[in-house]
């Protein structure tokens, strides 16, 4: 205990001294935007109709990167499913879960989390947030429900990892369609402003950015929820499947 405290204090002293040395050697903190960053900040509204420069980069300037990235996450989850192969082994025990108090409070909190996550996703083109943070927030509901209600209770209600992966696949397909539709008019793939409207009925939707955010929200939430279910398969159930061959 005392040794680790001494090591920690020594480490802290070394860090403080090294920082002073770096400053003495001429290390300067950045005080201004670099040219490329300045371009994005100044032109995000004109190029992408998005007041949020990060969302504009993620889904417009570098939209193709993000679509590939979404596909990578999808295939990682499919890979996980391939490794596990025990989805059918679930549901053999009566669901128990935790106390009624924890279940009721989880129900209330889940509603709040769902409302906040939808806001994060749908305002993603206007304020910091977007499909990925919103979807991750919604997946917390599934991660809470698994220990509080038990995996088997979720399976009894028809929430299976296979269905969630199907939802994720559908959302990913919709995302691909939004990216591909401009090609019909002879435009480039992932075109935003020349194909999709910047505003509808006076509401800024930033063209395809809000659509991408919504479908990404669905894809991430269902993907993470499926992950929570995969990781909760009871060991005995898994062993049964493996032993059966």
């Amino acid at each position: 205990m005392r040794t680790s405290l001494v090591v920690l204090l020594a480490l802290l002293g070394a860090a403080l001294a090294a920082s002073g040395a770096l400053v003495a050697l001429g290390l300067k903190a950045p005080l201004a935007l670099r040219e490329l960053g300045l371009y994005y900040v100044l032109n995000t509204i004109r190029d992408c109709a998005s007041p949020e420069a990060v969302a504009a980069i993620v889904w417009d300037y570098r939209g193709l990167d993000t679509i590939y990235e979404t596909a990578v996450l999808y295939f990682a989850l499919v890979g996980g499913l391939a490794i596990f192969r025990a989805a059918k082994a679930q549901g053999f025990k009566k669901p128990v879960g935790l106390t009624e108090l924890s279940k009721t409070s989880t129900r209330l909190i889940s509603l709040l989390i769902a409302a906040v996550s939808v806001c994060i996703a749908l305002h993603g083109h206007l304020t910091p947030g977007g499909g990925f943070p919103g979807g991750s927030a919604l997946a917390v509901v599934a991660m809470l429900a698994v220990p509080i209600y038990s995996v088997n209770s979720m399976l009894e209600r028809g929430i299976t990892s296979t269905k969630l992966i199907a939802v994720r696949g559908a959302a990913l397909t919709a995302l691909g369609l939004v990216a591909l539709l401009p090609v019909i008019r002879g435009l480039e793939i992932v075109t935003n402003q020349r194909f999709y409207p910047g505003a509808v009925l006076g509401f800024t939707i930033s063209g395809s950015i809000s659509m991408y955010n919504f479908f990404e929200f669905m894809a991430v939430a269902s993907g993470f929820a499926a992950l929570a279910l995969y990781l909760s398969i009871p060991e005995e159930a898994f062993r049964e499947v493996v032993e059966r061959g």
Binding site: Y40, I57, V58, T66, T70, F132
Partner: peptide, 17 residues
């Protein structure tokens, strides 16, 4: 700068996968 934030967002997803 918005660019590193957008790149990190992508990186987080790939890292998570």
């Amino acid at each position: 700068d918005p660019l590193p934030q957008a790149l990190v967002l992508t990186g987080i997803v790939i890292g998570f996968a």
